[in-house]
Design a protein around this nucleic acid. Structure first.
Length: 196
DNA sequence: GCAATGATTTACT
DNA sequence: GTAAATCATTGCC
């Protein structure tokens, strides 16, 4: 069952980030479906320094975050990695969720092909740059709707007890000062596919 | 441990 | 208009 825009358009981005754990993220490219279970997310809000749209600053790059929830926000980082975000909240409220890691379930062989030769078993989608490459996501997916058939998120009816969810500070945003300490990163406890 | 790599933004002329 | 600095990382040394 695919999640509708109502799910993304609620106001509490941190709550949505937590609820995305255990849901399924999939892409369909050239008729091939690839994807898996979300095991790691991070929440970003325009109210704090970790976000590209801090204090509502709108640029050509982040303007998609000002769209209503349910859109994707993809951008290139470090010159070589695409990062996949889900836009949440309503128009002109720039909140988003970064999906950092998946547990592969569908199209594993195709994903291995896209990633090239791998040394370890758990390297396929255990990181934000890795999962976009495995799913074939690039900049052309920026601004797509998650209610359509190229990229979407499904409720897999997995029951995930709150004891399995762990909140930690976010990764790689030391420049955000005090805001870097916010416990807005969510992972599934004891899951092997969570990033380092 | 650290180089690779490029779109984007900011700070200048 | 042009140039330099920045970056929500990865993989190979």
């Amino acid at each position: 069952m695919k999640l509708t825009q109502d799910f993304y358009q609620r106001k509490n981005v941190v709550k949505i980030a937590r609820e995305l754990l255990g849901k399924g993220l999939f892409t369909k490219i050239d008729g091939i479906v690839t994807g898996g279970i979300i095991v790691e997310t991070e929440a970003y809000s325009w109210k704090e320094r970790g976000c590209h749209a801090f204090q509502g600053k709108k640029t050509k790059r982040n303007e998609i975050m000002f769209q209503p929830g349910g859109h994707t926000y993809i951008y290139l980082c470090y010159g070589m990695h695409h990062l996949f975000n889900v836009v949440t909240n309503t128009t002109d409220v720039a909140d988003a969720i970064l999906v950092r890691a998946l547990e592969p379930t569908i199209g594993v062989e195709e994903m291995q092909l896209r990633r090239g030769l791998l040394k370890g078993k758990f390297h396929l989608t255990s990181g934000p740059g890795k999962l976009t490459k495995a799913l074939g996501i690039d900049r052309t997916f920026n601004g797509k709707l998650l209610t359509e058939n190229e990229v979407w998120i499904e409720d897999l009816q997995n029951k995930l007890p709150s004891t399995k969810i762990k909140a930690t500070p976010r990764i790689g945003i030391d420049y955000a000062g005090e805001d870097a300490k916010l416990p807005w990163r969510f992972v599934i406890k004891d899951n092997e596919w969570v990033s380092q």
